[in-house]
C-alpha cells in the first residue's frame, strides 16, 4: 500500500507535538465511499497542505476535523480524529468548544448581513462575555491580524456585505481569529479571489503560521509550495473514495515521479500555471 510507504518516509516534524491526528478515517454516503482510511498527523505550528483533484474528498476530510460534517445529513463517519490525543468524536467532546479551537474558513466568504464590527465579534461574543467597550478592542485586534484594519477602521458600522469579496474573505478570517483558535482549517480560501486578494491571504498565512497551525486545502501547487511545510496528496479513483496517495515535505512530494496520479496532477497544474504567467 502506498500509504504505508509514505508513512515510512522519515518525517522530521514527527518529533514535534502532533495536535491533530486522524486514524483510519472513513466517510460513507450510503453505500458510496467518500474517504477510505485516512491517516495523518498535523503538528503544532505547521502549515499542512491538502492537495488533490476535484471531488477527491478534501473538503470532506477538512470538515471531519472539526465535525462540521455532522451538519451534513446522510454521511457516516468511521475511524478516529484525535485533537490533543482526545477523540473528537467521543461523547466527552464538546463539539461547539472544539469548533472554537479548530476554526474554519470556507471557500466562499460567508458574511452575516450585519455591520463589519458585529461580524467580527459574532462568534466570540457567544463564547465569552465581552463588555461593550471591549468589543472594539477585540475587533481591532482581529482585524489587524487579518490585515483588514486599515481598510475598514473608519466604517466599522457599515454593512459587511458592501465589502469586496476579497475583503469579505479577510473579514471571515478576522472573525475566526477573534476566537483565538489553535488550528485554522482553510478550504481553498483564495479560489474565489482575484490575484491581489489571493496575495494578501497568502501573506497572511505566512504571518499566521508563526502562532497558529493551519490546514490548507488548495488547488494551486504554487500556493502549496510557497506556504506549506508538508502536504498530503489525496487522490480518488472513480467510485473508490479518496485516500492519501502520498504525504511528506512539500518539495519531496512535489518532486515524486513514481506516482502516476500525482505527476498527472502536478504536470497538468504546472501547464496551466505556465500559461497564466
Amino acid at each position: 500500500m502506498i500509504e504505508t510507504k509514505s508513512k515510512g518516509q522519515s518525517d522530521p516534524s514527527e518529533t514535534r507535538t502532533c495536535i491533530l491526528e486522524t486514524r483510519q478515517l472513513k466517510v460513507y454516503a450510503g453505500k458510496q465511499v467518500l474517504l477510505q482510511g485516512i491517516d495523518l498527523g498535523i503538528s503544532e505550528g505547521e502549515v499542512f497542505g491538502l492537495i488533490g483533484p476535484s471531488g477527491a474528498g478534501k473538503s470532506t476530510l477538512l470538515r471531519c476535523l472539526n465535525r462540521l460534517i455532522d451538519l451534513d445529513q446522510g454521511l457516516r463517519v468511521e475511524g478516529a480524529v484525535l485533537f490533543h490525543g482526545q477523540s473528537v468524536r467521543g461523547r466527552a467532546m464538546d463539539v461547539d468548544e472544539l469548533r472554537v479551537r479548530v476554526g474554519m474558513l470556507f471557500q466562499q466568504p460567508v458574511v452575516f448581513p450585519l455591520s463589519i464590527l458585529k461580524n467580527v465579534i459574532f462568534g466570540v461574543r457567544h463564547q465569552r462575555k465581552i463588555a461593550r467597550r471591549d468589543r472594539l478592542l477585540v475587533a481591532e485586534k482581529a482585524l489587524r491580524e487579518a490585515a483588514l484594519w486599515q481598510e475598514v477602521k473608519d466604517r466599522l458600522q457599515t454593512p459587511a456585505l458592501k465589502l469586496s469579496v476579497g475583503q469579505q474573505q479577510r473579514l471571515c478570517l478576522a472573525r475566526t481569529l477573534a476566537m483565538e483558535p489553535e488550528i485554522i482549517l482553510m478550504d481553498e480560501p483564495t479560489s474565489a479571489l482575484d490575484p491581489k486578494s489571493t496575495q494578501a491571504i497568502d501573506d497572511l498565512i505566512m504571518e499566521l503560521k508563526k502562532k497558529r497551525t493551519i490546514v490548507l486545502v488548495t488547488h494551486h501547487l504554487n500556493q502549496a509550495r510557497r506556504l506549506c511545510d508538508r502536504v498530503a496528496f489525496i487522490s480518488a479513483k472513480s467510485g473508490e473514495g479518496g485516500r492519501i496517495a502520498c504525504m511528506g515535505e512539500t518539495e519531496t512530494v512535489m518532486s515524486r515521479t513514481d506516482l502516476a496520479e500525482l505527476s498527472d496532477f502536478v504536470g497538468c497544474e504546472q501547464g496551466v500555471t505556465c500559461c497564466e504567467s
Binding site: 461547539d96 460567508v110 459574532f122 462568534g123 476566537m179
Partner: peptide, 25 residues
Amino acid sequence: AAQGRAARGLGLTRAETAIWVSLAQ
C-alpha cells in the same frame, strides 16, 4: 444554509444559531 454552517463553524450552539441566524434573518 451557508449562514448557519458558518455560525456553527464559529462554535455557536444549535440554539444560538437558531436565534442569531435563523430567527434574526
